[in-house]
Each structure stands twice: as structure tokens, then as C-alpha cells.
Amino acid sequence: MSVFVFGGNGFVGSAIIRKLVESGVPCVGVSRRASDIAPWHVADAMDPSTYPDMSGARAVVVSMGTPPLPFVDYETQRAANGASNVRVLEAAQALGVRTVLVNATMPRWAPSGYRDGKLDAEKAATGVVLKPSAIYGTRYHNGIPIPLHFLAPVSWVFRLPIAGKLCELAPGLFEGALVPPVPVSKVAKAAFDACVTDDFRPAVLGPHDILSVLP
């Protein structure tokens, strides 16, 4: 009973796979490009005919998308952050497999293609939805660790009461923006817990919920 991780080559997806491998949970990475951190299946998320056989899987994790860049056109961002995720979720859910979607908490003024895509994916999800804000930690490029911990102090500041007060005063400006960044290890652990728990139930976990996940 393997866990299939779509987007396993990404920052978050690779962290989830590493957590599964370290814990001895069978897993398969799925993306356009293979990696050597786990067994792999090369597939195009937009083309279900390329998916691996997921019947009987323990869980399917969906961790795909593009950054919220203002110069990327609307349709491209919406498809990358929405349609690709929706197709995987629907394929897994049709098989009765539990799903874990890594989505996003974002401000109202995020680029509309990015925002609409993330909302499309969340609406399609029937399992656990993780909604971190900015994510920091160690990214790996060709096996080389690249530390990205500069957001850790920002996370501490955004947990102060003043951040919540500002959101109340100007929600259109600050809501979804002044939320604490989360370490990639916490996102990976939250996804791992959702994949292996015996007491699985649908849930939406925001940044504060993810930060509270036990190591």
C-alpha cells in the first residue's frame, strides 16, 4: 500500500517523500522528471492516461503548482495550480483512495490565476487540505541542500497579536498576508500524518494548525 506523491520533485513534495522514506512507508514519486530519492513514475498530471495504477494505494498526495508570479498569464496559472491538481484528485477519489492536497493560504490580492487555481483545487478535494502560507526550510537541487531559513524570524513576528489586529482593521490588505510562514518539515509531517493515520477524516489545516503539528 504505497503513498503516491504527485509533484514529488518540488520543494514540498520532495520533503514529503523524504519523510515517508525515513519512516519506512512505501511511496512512489510522480512527476514529469524522475528522481532517485524513491521509486518513481514519470507522468503528466494533465493526462490521466499516464498515471500509475493507484488502486489500493494508502493515499495520494497532491503537491503541484507554480509560484504566484504577476507576469504569468491567467490561464497558465489557473491550469497549473487548479486543473492539474483537480485531475489527480478526481482520479484518486474515484478509486476510493484518501487524498492529501497541499494548497495555500493567500491574500485576496494574490494574482487572480494563481488564486482561482488554488480555489479550484480546494473545491475538488474531499480529504485533507493543507493550507500553508510561505514555506521555508532546506530545498534540494540535484542532491545539494540549499538552506532557506530567512523566513523563520518573520514567522515569529506574524504570530504576535498585532498581526491579528491588523488583519481585523484592514482585511482586504492584510488577511491571508500576515500569516506566519511555516517550515517545510511541518508541512511534510502534517501530510505524512494524514497519509498514515488510522483515524482519517477530511480536514482543512491552515498555517497555525500546521505549526502546531508535533515533530
Rank of each mutant, 00 (worst) to 15 (best):
S63A: 15
E75N: 12
A38S: 15
T76P: 00
A43P: 07
R58I: 04
Y74P: 05
T66L: 15
D47V: 08
N81C: 12
H41K: 08
T50L: 03
A34M: 03
S49A: 14
R58C: 03
A45S: 13
P68Y: 09
T76Y: 02
V62A: 03
D36C: 07
A45C: 11
F71K: 12
T50R: 03
R78D: 09
S49T: 12
P67H: 07
A59K: 02
W40T: 07
A57M: 08
V62H: 02
D44C: 10
F71C: 03
M64F: 04
G56L: 09
W40H: 05
S55I: 08
P67T: 08
Q77E: 14
P39K: 11
S49F: 01
Q77W: 04
D53A: 14
S63H: 01
E75Y: 10
L69E: 12
D36E: 14
V62Y: 03
V72R: 14
M46S: 14
D36H: 07
G65Y: 00
T76A: 09
P67Y: 07
A38K: 06
H41D: 08
Y51I: 07
Y74Q: 11
R78M: 13
D47W: 03
A80T: 10
V72C: 00
R78S: 09
D73Y: 06
M46R: 06
